[in-house]
């Protein structure tokens, strides 16, 4: 009795120490290769310039009757996020059923589905945007397609999991009363998964808004392009204005979406 307890304790100690050593080795490797962090005098100047830009933003850029302005590009960013989320929320449905364990007869079918979804998820939006630009040219449409494709991975996974958690008693009850397939789908399955589906879609929309703000860096529309130009041209007041615009927009969207999600669930 005592012997087994002592053995267990020793084993635990060995486990703890090996993990400590592994973590230590990883950290030594990581920090040994790090370039020294040095502050050049230009860094202080740049920080000062950024902050003064944030305090005195370029209000002329906010609304310009002709040409590009903050409002228009922010709206374009929102369009990209809305349509990208919409596309993926439709396209993810078959993937979700493919990946759900209880919807397939064989385990390996759903495993393949899950793998496909995670492969889609791993592809960064920015690279997808570059690929779609090759197809449809620069502009917001490429961004929409990139976001729409990328979001399938996450929405399909979340939605598939909610299908797996589904309770089948109500659909069986309907079936035993003589309901056909479409009726069972409409009255038993849809009402059950709809709230979580809408909530996941809204959550993905929040993430898509953030992602859409950077797609412009590669030319896929939205606020990213003017931001990069302003940064490269050292127009700090304009950078400040754009940053404030992004922060305000994301905050408002997050707030609205969180309120709706709270009411749904």
């Amino acid at each position: 009795m005592n012997e087994t307890i002592r053995k267990k304790r020793i084993m635990r100690r060995i486990k703890i120490w090996t993990s400590v050593i592994i973590i230590a080795v990883i950290y030594i490797w990581a920090f040994s290769g790090m370039p020294a962090m040095e502050f050049k005098p230009s860094a202080v100047q740049a920080i000062k310039a950024i902050f003064s830009g944030l305090i005195h933003p370029d209000w002329d850029y906010f609304y310009d009757p002709e040409g590009e302005d903050l409002l228009r590009t922010l709206l374009e960013t929102l369009y990209i996020a809305v349509l990208g989320t919409f596309i993926s929320s439709i396209l993810c449905v078959p993937f979700a059923f493919w990946a759900a364990r209880n919807m397939n007869k064989y385990q390996f079918v759903s495993s393949i589905g899950k793998f496909v979804l995670s492969a889609i998820r791993v592809f960064p939006e920015l690279i997808l945007a570059l690929l779609f630009i090759a197809a449809v040219g620069t502009g917001p449409f490429a961004g929409i397609l990139a976001l729409g494709f990328h979001s399938i991975g996450m929405l399909g996974k979340l939605f598939g999991e909610s299908i797996e958690d589904m309770d089948f008693s109500s659909s069986e009850a309907l079936k035993s009363c003589g309901a056909n397939k479409i009726q069972t789908l409409w009255f038993a399955i849809v009402p059950q998964v709809m709230p979580s589906f809408v909530s996941f879609t809204l959550y993905r929309f929040e993430l898509s808004v953030r992602a859409a703000t950077i797609l412009g860096i590669v030319g896929a529309g939205g606020i990213g392009a003017p931001l990069i130009f302003a940064l490269q041209g050292h127009k700090w007041d304009r950078v400040g204005m754009i940053l404030i615009g992004i922060i305000v927009m994301v905050t408002i969207i997050d707030y609205i979406s969180a309120t709706i999600r709270k009411r749904i669930v």
Binding site: A43, I47, T213, I214, I217, L231, L243, I247, T251, D254
Partner: peptide
């Protein structure tokens, strides 16, 4: 915290590049 979370990491990187120079830092 909420303010910082609204900015995507690529934008942060774009902001830090002029401050710290091009590179890992």
């Amino acid at each position: 915290m909420n303010l910082i979370r609204t900015i995507p990491e690529l934008l942060l990187a774009a902001l830090f590049v002029p401050v710290l120079g091009i590179g890992d830092n």
